[in-house]
Amino acid sequence: MRVGFVLGEMFAGLRRNITMTLSVVLVTMVSLFFFGAGLLVQQQVSILKGDWYDRVQVSIFLCGEDSPAEACPEGAITASQRDALRAQLQADPLVDEVFYESQADAFRNFQQMYDTSITANVTTEQLPESFRVRLTDPSRYQEVTAEFVDAAGVEDVPDQRAILEPLFTVLGTATQIALGLAALMLLCSVMLVSTTIRLTAFSRRRETTIMRLVGASRALIQLPFVLEGVIASLLGGLLASAALWAMVHFGVARLRARPGFTTRLIDTHDVLWQTAPLILAVGLVFAIGASLFSLRRWLKV
């Protein structure tokens, strides 16, 4: 009986304030959409970083006959320098595995990577020999780089991060903008929820006065109002989830269909099982908080 009563009161309230309810739904939707989008971009960045770190190998290029004099003042690397480098690498706790790539190996890889119009003009001697190093902790590759870049017989240890860092910076900024907008919009939706509830409480003060006088508990008086906020926020959250799903389903799928795009991308599964539950929970908590806060002042026992 009481469940029916509370639900009846709640739907009556939602109907009575249909425009306010709709605005709560829409503002909540937009705010949670930005919040979810920020989360998804962040997730994509961490996938990219993970993938990249998995692949990270430090390449230590060794001095050859053609190396520039400022990097290799002593000319080509000697056999003893090479052995010393290998021993130093193998003793390094950061180093997991060391592969040696001779000039012949390098030439073979080069031929595989590029077509003959380019490889025809390149000889084995022009390509440097190198150590390819896999790290125990890829995120600490800079320490290894610093350790070997000035060693005798080493021409260069290129910093691979320079290639990907700009991308990470852009994505990081995008995340921050999305989350900032989300915070602003969440603030708007909280204020809107509490205003709406205040208006509803005011328009139904006759009912609530009577409920108080006949001895209804405070919980019963407040519950319909709280539920109104909760229902409106949940609707907004569901719409936001649907919009995020559509964005990932259609937008990211198109990106994935492009040739040459090999990186793992976020998919609708991430939206459904991670982002959507989270934004619904956030919407719920904010709605309950906002309604209880506004009711505390307006519906005293």
């Binding site: 006759r206 009912e207 006065t209 009577i210 108080r212 006088l213 006949v214 001895g215 209804a216 508990s217 405070r218 026992v301």
Partner: peptide, 20 residues
Amino acid sequence: WKVPGLRRQIGVVFQDFRLL
């Protein structure tokens, strides 16, 4: 939280009826 229990013991009637 016990005030509702008190009010269940009391009926109130007003000059302006206060019907819904």
